[in-house]
């Protein structure tokens, strides 16, 4: 979908056109679903949260200033819904875990299909500082943009680029050096 089409869809949705909102849903639902699914690890739960996210998005559609802000705004709503989901489950999950829910995402990598070299890369990835690991995961495994990653991690896009750069350099060094204790 082009920028112009998205802009028109947003304007139309803001004037109450549900079909136009459907276009926005079609454009972002898969990406949002992937984001939610990796954080809750269950299809039906992720679908419920996705539905809640878009219902809230519709209710607050007039708060969006520009079509370029739509993805960040949707991620923000989804993020809050995921946190709410874990809050409701607080009888079985501690509050500390709720706070770190977004960092504790399930891996999107199909570990059973990994080759030797790929397994080694994944193992080395675990030796990176947590934030560097997260940036690699968001960028490579979840296909998020720097803008989206910045929003999820509460950082600037510049900070995301720095983390990304450091993660790649460090990973290269680790792979060159081989396994360490």
């Amino acid at each position: 979908m082009t920028d112009e089409e998205l802009k028109k869809a947003l304007e139309s949705a803001q004037s109450g056109n549900t079909s136009a909102f459907g276009i926005i849903y079609d454009n972002y639902s898969e990406k949002m679903f992937r984001f939610i699914f990796f954080r809750v690890g269950h299809k039906e739960v992720a679908e419920d949260i996705l539905a809640d996210t878009f219902v809230k998005a519709w209710q607050k559609i007039n708060q969006v200033q520009s079509h370029s802000a739509i993805p960040s705004w949707l991620y923000q709503i989804a993020k809050n819904n995921i946190i709410d989901f874990y809050r409701v489950r607080k009888t079985t999950i501690s509050l500390e875990e709720v706070a770190s829910v977004l960092e504790d995402a399930a891996t999107p990598i199909d570990e059973l299909s990994l080759g030797f070299e790929q397994r080694k890369i994944l193992k080395m990835l675990e030796q990176l500082p947590l934030e560097q690991q997260q940036v690699i995961q968001y960028k490579f495994f979840e296909d998020l943009t720097n803008q989206e990653i910045a929003l999820i991690m509460n950082k600037t896009e510049g900070a995301v680029r720095v983390l990304q750069h450091r993660a790649i350099i460090k990973l290269k060094e680790l792979l060159k050096r081989g396994p360490t204790s």
Binding site: T18, Y25, F33, F37, D110
Partner: peptide, 30 residues
């Protein structure tokens, strides 16, 4: 390294319910 990272196999995300979710959303909106 970047090429290798980008080519790591991903799990299959079950997105087959997105159409049904869309209907649910529109029912709730209505």
């Amino acid at each position: 390294l970047i090429v290798k990272l980008a080519s790591l196999p991903r799990i299959n995300v079950p997105t087959d319910g997105l159409g049904r979710v869309k209907n649910q959303i529109f029912n709730r909106i209505r």
